[in-house]
């Protein structure tokens, strides 16, 4: 049987990776969307691991809600990326600088 801590470490690694992706990524907006997904998966990993070890079904129910909302979120995100490309002809993070001050 795999210990709970292993799952949590995996979750923490995924979470840190996604945060690192946010901070380090200087090129593409799509990568940011992938980081968002990765972050939610890290959270799901935590919830499922806890839910299994606590013998409590509520954590798994929450995961279904997170998955559903994540899908809706990505739909909106991709729609905006399309819009952005149409208006600015680029999805480069560094070129998103017309608003500042």
């Amino acid at each position: 049987m795999i210990a709970l801590s292993n799952y949590l470490i995996l979750g923490a690694i995924l979470f840190s990776l996604s945060i690192a992706g946010f901070v380090l990524n200087r090129r593409n907006v799509i990568t940011l969307l992938m980081c968002v997904e990765l972050m939610l998966l890290a959270v799901n990993m935590n919830f499922i691991a806890f839910s299994h070890y606590l013998n409590d079904i509520k954590g798994q129910v929450f995961v279904f809600f997170i998955l559903t909302v994540a899908a809706a979120e990505t739909a909106i995100g991709l729609a905006i990326v399309v819009l952005l490309y149409r208006n600015k002809k680029t999805i480069d993070v560094q070129e998103l600088d017309s608003l500042k001050g």
Binding site: F22, G77, I80, L84, K88
Partner: peptide, 13 residues
Amino acid sequence: SAQASEAAIKFFV
């Protein structure tokens, strides 16, 4: 509006 879509993607992320 390019401005609005840029604001939207920042808000979203």
